[in-house]
Simulated assay, not measured.
Amino acid sequence: MDLKLELIVLPVSDVDRAKAFYEQAGFRLDLDKAVSEDWRAVHFTPPGSECSIIFGQGITSAAPGSVQGLYLIVTDIEEARAELVGRGIEVSEVFHDAGGLFYHGHDAGEVTHQVEGQERVAGPHPDRATYGSYADFSDPDGNGWVLQEVTQRAPGR
């Protein structure tokens, strides 16, 4: 059985501000539909992704900015970061984990899933190890995104 992740719901406080942000970031606008004053859906897809995001009015009761650790996989972390920065998106500097372990989170003290003692180190992984270099950013509400450089997929992926 195939189970394909298709859509992630993002809680936002201002639909038009979020729409402008994701357009600026280069995501493809797939839908902006309002059926009443209380319900509006805005649907975007990141470039090259098969999974999309949706936000709007009446879409979710989750707190704006509460979604963290949304990974965008890129083949060149520095190029991807530069493109987002060039589009006016505030993105952290590229970093890696000194211990080489899994990183998940955002540098503003938000949700992280790191082993105690892990250290965030400036710059890409010294060997440019696949799955080893990161940069992160947030939308205007604080929903957290992580760029991760993957140059060779793990077996079975």
Rank of each mutant, 00 (worst) to 15 (best):
D136R: 00
V115C: 07
E149N: 06
E37F: 09
I54N: 00
H113Y: 15
S138E: 03
L3P: 00
E79L: 15
P46N: 11
D76Q: 11
M1N: 02
A80I: 03
A98C: 09
L3N: 09
R128D: 10
Y134T: 07
G142K: 06
L84V: 10
H43Q: 10
P64H: 06
I8Q: 05
G100M: 10
G132L: 04
S133L: 04
L70Q: 07
I8E: 03
S133Q: 02
L70K: 01
S49R: 01
D141F: 09
G109D: 08
S138D: 00
R157K: 09
E119R: 12
H96L: 08
D127N: 12
L101N: 12
A129P: 02
G132S: 00
P126L: 05
F137H: 00
H104Y: 11
D38K: 15
L7D: 11
E79S: 15
A18G: 00
V146L: 15
L147N: 01
R120T: 15
I89D: 02
T151D: 14
L101K: 10
G132I: 06
A98F: 14
A18I: 13
D2H: 11
D97A: 02
L70S: 06
P140H: 00
G123F: 03
Q118C: 08
R40G: 04
G156L: 14
I8H: 08
L84K: 02
D141A: 08
L84A: 03
M1K: 04
I73Y: 05
Y71C: 10
F55G: 00
D139P: 00
P46L: 10
L3D: 13
D107W: 09
S49C: 15
R87P: 01
L29D: 09
E6C: 04
A18F: 02
V15M: 07
L72C: 06
L31K: 11
V111L: 14
H113C: 03
E83L: 14
V74F: 04
W145E: 01
G56K: 00
E83N: 07
A135D: 09
A62F: 09
D136Y: 03
D141E: 10
E23T: 06
V94T: 12
F27A: 10
I59H: 03
A63P: 07
R153K: 12
M1V: 13
E6D: 12
E119P: 00
T75A: 11
L3F: 15
E23C: 02
A82D: 13
Y71V: 04
